[in-house]
Design a protein around this nucleic acid. Structure first.
Length: 278
DNA sequence: AAAGTTGCCTGCAAGC
DNA sequence: TGCTTGCAGGCAACTT
């Protein structure tokens, strides 16, 4: 699913069709996604101008001209695709059966598709966004200046949870998901099983660096090629960025050639190289 | 059959 | 002891 780099890539692709544009038509084709849409959802959006399209963690935020913000989360399989941009070529769900919301501006049409329907769309008062339960507990943006070695060391101090789980904890760092947690740990040569509070200063520094690097690389590549992921223009994401360990159980570690191992932590797969990552 | 997410619920353990 | 907190694990939402 879209983690931070994928959501950021989608955001950039949507800017030309949304930012500064008026929503001339909004259509919902079912009562909601994971949660029901708010009351009069489509009606409240119609006619509004999108002042800006931002991102916080894995959420897209379309700030409207009436003091409200349209909040979109892609869940596991959500896509926001600009129509007529070559989507068909790569589309695996041609039927349109899972096209749940359609946005139309003068600049184009955007279709929200989500076959697993784990996504979320809602409208919130812009001024109260930070206090809303969706956002109030979110941690630091990993690509911001606030996130560095010192921050990470402080945040992990005393934590007895495995470092892999700590990376997935959105209250600490917001936007990392299962894939980039695995990849960052590999780059920092740290085992996912290590207890978060036991990292040495130089290790948490290396990890902070690895998180930034892997996220930036993934954004540069236009997101990763996940099964259901598509950029706003329908492209399947950067082939440039090959995962080093994620989903590669049994394959050779790109550094030492040993077998990549898969374990389950907190119900999620972790992939790592037992000889490189200590 | 497993999946990229989030949140809720349970049960257990530690701390005060 | 009992209350609170934190954490781990399981599950649910749904489709391919």
């Amino acid at each position: 699913m879209p983690e931070l780099p994928e959501v950021e890539t989608v955001r950039r692709g949507l800017v030309p069709v949304l930012e500064g544009q008026r929503l001339v038509k909004v259509e919902t084709r079912r009562p909601g996604l994971r949660l029901p849409f708010p009351k009069d959802f489509a009606k409240r959006l119609t006619g509004r101008r999108v002042e800006s399209l931002k991102r916080r963690a894995k959420y897209l935020l379309a700030e409207l001209d009436n003091g409200e913000t349209l909040v979109i989360h892609l869940g596991m399989s959500g896509r926001m695709a600009v129509e007529g941009s070559g989507l068909g070529a790569h589309d695996t769900s041609v039927s349109g059966k899972h096209d749940h919301v359609v946005f139309e501006t003068e600049a184009g049409r955007i279709v929200f598709t989500d076959h697993r329907r784990f996504g979320l769309m809602t409208l919130l008062k812009t001024a109260a966004l930070a206090e809303d339960k969706l956002f109030r507990d979110l941690g630091v943006e990993p690509l911001s200046e606030k996130f560095d070695a010192a921050f990470l060391a402080r945040a992990l101090k005393g934590k007895k949870t495995p470092i892999k789980s700590a990376l997935l904890d959105q209250r600490i760092i917001a936007g990392i998901g299962n894939i980039y947690a695995c990849e960052a740990l590999f780059r920092a040569r740290i085992s996912p099983k290590r207890l978060a509070g036991r990292l040495k200063p130089q290790e948490s520094a290396a990890l902070a660096e690895a998180v930034k690097t892997v996220l930036k690389e993934a954004i540069k590549a236009g997101g990763s090629s996940l099964r259901d992921y598509r950029q706003a223009n329908g492209d399947p994401g950067g082939f440039q960025l090959r995962f080093k360990v994620y989903d590669r159980a049994g394959e050779p570690c790109p550094v030492c050639g040993g077998a990549v191992k898969r374990i389950v932590q907190a119900g999620r797969s972790s992939f790592f190289c037992p000889s490189c990552q200590k």
